[in-house]
């Protein structure tokens, strides 16, 4: 409703297919997103240490580090980061069976671009919801503790920084 529609989505794009990263990045940038593209897991982790992302698009099958692993490490760094997995047909079924994909949104390659856009929008909105809920919970805790107005002011400012990471 609010920030997700006005603030550009900060996107981390991870795929070992360089052309895909380049051109999908171009298309997404044209639609107002801020895209950081990398072609392997370690580079993705490096990027997540340096900047904050709203959504990560991660290829499931990559040589150095597979998508699931990448996503687990990214989540450890940025708990509110939402992921979209790109999988090959068939491989998503084995991943699903192994219970690895349940936690993520996923699209089967070759994906439909409009479906991808829609999914990015949903992922971003989900992230904002989760952030807002957590912020509200902590804020309510402060009120419940009967904190002073001054304390509430400074604490809420701290929380805002912590959760929005701006």
């Amino acid at each position: 409703m609010d920030k997700s529609t006005t603030k550009p989505t900060r996107l981390l794009l991870v795929d070992d297919e360089e052309d895909l990263v380049t051109y999908l990045g171009q298309r997404l940038q044209k639609r107002g997103m801020v895209v950081h593209g990398v072609t392997n897991g370690p580079d993705a982790i490096k990027a997540a240490r340096a900047e904050v992302f709203d959504v990560a698009i991660v290829d499931l099958q990559m040589p150095k580090m597979n998508g699931i692993e990448v996503m687990q490490q990214l989540s450890a760094l940025q708990p509110f980061l939402e992921a979209i997995m790109l999988t090959g047909h068939g491989s998503h079924e084995s991943a699903w069976e192994a219970g690895k994909l349940h936690a993520f949104r996923y699209l089967i390659k070759p994906y439909d671009f409009d479906a991808l856009l829609q999914m990015i929008g949903e992922a971003h909105a989900a992230r904002n919801d989760a952030l807002r809920r957590t912020f509200q919970d902590k804020f309510n805790e402060l009120i419940a503790r009967n904190a002073s107005a001054r304390e509430i002011m400074t604490e809420s400012e701290r929380l805002r920084r912590e959760y929005e990471q701006d």
Binding site: E17, D19, Y23, L24, Q26, R27, G88, G90, P110, Y111
Partner: peptide
């Protein structure tokens, strides 16, 4: 074979999207 072809297909599809843009 199909599995391997899907990757280049995804790229071709994306690039044609870029051209369209």
């Amino acid at each position: 074979v199909a599995h391997e072809i899907n990757n280049p297909l995804a790229v071709i599809d994306t690039i044609s999207g870029v051209l369209d843009d």
